[in-house]
Computed example of a mutant assay.
Amino acid sequence: MMFTGFKNKFICAIGACLLTSTVAAADYPSRDIRLIVPWPAGGGADAISRKISNLAEQQMPVSIYVENIPGAVTATGLMQMTRARPDGHTVGVLTYDSVITLPRGNMVPGYSLEKMAPIARITREADAVVVSKHSGFTDFNQLIEAAKAKPNSVRVGVAPKGSGPFLAIRRLEQQAGVKFNVITYPGSSSAEAEALLSGELDAAISSLGDFSGIIESGDAKGLVELSSEQNPSFPGVPPISTLGYELETGSFVLLAAPKNTPKEAIVKLEASFKHAFESEEFQTWVASTGVTPSWLGANDVQNWIDELQSETFKVMDGLGL
């Protein structure tokens, strides 16, 4: 009798938990959703995050507000995200450094992608080689020939060791048989843009969108994009594949929630952001920035992350990084 009574209470307790979970899922979202962007305000990832969240919240009964928490190559903000209650009311933005640089170097204790539940990929953005007008280079072959003629003379700015642009310049040196004077700049590409303007750099590697201001003003020129596809926003910049090189690299914007976030919440978040992604307003806006809209939903994005890590880490092993 005592066992029967305990069993009945146990079953009731489970039923109550399931009922509570179902009610909570039905009520989601019950408050505003916090979107953590682990970069300072004003950058490319911040702009994309703000634009799509403004559109996504139109599908929600609550607001989605952006909070910029930079630091530790995106780890500071994303670790705050993973420590938040996994109820769908906190979401984080991941970029290249979040997926490649941090895991590869084990740079920040406690940081792990295994503590996150991917929601979607929003955009992809190829890197590009951009030159200052002071350099005198008008095409990619001129840049390569100058580096061959005088090794270490062509000054190229990139993000720090382990970043996509850093790997790109080392791979380009191998493929072209040249040696550049590589100068690293921590933080955003704005420092590289200033160095191009002042003549401190001959060239830099980042996205065309990052340098769009100085390209439009005529102070810089895009020579080649590290892609196999022509960017329709920059028809005058050829993909590097047309010049005989195999070198594709760039950044992206992903969304993720803390691990163990209820599936119902992930589904609602994914649906809202997908609706925003497919809207004419977002597609028109993102095209104007030179970024490629590139959707992958929750069922596919984890496999894409795994494949990207595997391929990139092999390249890093080959370069001894």
Rank of each mutant, 00 (worst) to 15 (best):
T4H: 11
K7Q: 14
F10N: 11
A16W: 07
T22F: 13
A25I: 11
A26M: 15
Y28K: 05
R34K: 08
V37K: 03
R50I: 10
R50L: 10
S53K: 05
L55C: 07
A56W: 00
S63I: 12
I64L: 06
E67K: 11
G71C: 10
T74L: 08
T76C: 05
T76L: 12
M79V: 02
M81Q: 09
H89G: 02
H89I: 06
V93D: 04
D97I: 05
S98D: 05
I100V: 07
T101Y: 11
T101H: 12
P103V: 00
N106H: 09
S112V: 03
M116H: 09
A117C: 11
R121K: 15
S132K: 03
T138Q: 14
T138F: 12
T138R: 13
L143H: 01
A147T: 06
V154G: 01
G157C: 07
P160N: 08
K161L: 15
G162N: 01
F166A: 15
A168T: 15
A168Q: 08
I169G: 03
L172R: 06
Q175I: 04
V178D: 00
N181V: 03
T184S: 10
S189L: 03
A193P: 01
A195H: 02
E200G: 10
L201I: 02
D202M: 03
D202T: 00
A204E: 09
S206V: 02
S206N: 09
S206T: 05
G209N: 07
S212H: 10
E216W: 07
A220Q: 01
K221I: 14
P232T: 00
S233R: 13
F234K: 03
G236Q: 01
V237N: 01
P239Y: 00
P239R: 06
I240Q: 00
S241L: 08
Y245G: 09
G250P: 02
A257P: 06
N260T: 09
E264T: 12
A265T: 03
L269I: 11
K274G: 07
H275W: 12
F277P: 07
F277L: 14
W285D: 05
V286G: 04
S288W: 04
W295F: 14
Q309V: 04
S310G: 09
E311P: 04
T312R: 15
F313L: 13
F313S: 05
V315P: 04
L319G: 13
G320S: 05
